[in-house]
Amino acid sequence: MAPPLVLDEDQALELLAYLVTAARTQVDEAAEYGPMRLLTAAGRLAAMIRPRASEGLQDVLAGPLGSVPPTAVPRTGREAYVARLDGICRELAEHLSIRFAPGCRTTVTPG
């Protein structure tokens, strides 16, 4: 079964414009704005796809990803910032594993 379509053309175009123009502005901006712009794009994408997303994905989108303030930069509290991003990455990876590689497990290497 084909996965559900969760993004319409207008939304995709809006995100495309954001990403392209952010690439341009980032040339002149402080490096710390880089992760902020990417997270803003991720946050907007999450907000766009959430209403039509499947149940499991909706849970992920409603999690920490959606709670990152749009003004957060790794200027002060860098460790906490990194820890928060790592947490989001882990949660996403967990969802990806369940969705695309169910039953994934480790085994002991045969001796």
Partner: peptide
């Protein structure tokens, strides 16, 4: 806003 990444 679409072409202004700083426009939160």
């Amino acid at each position: 806003r679409m072409v202004s990444p700083g426009m939160i």
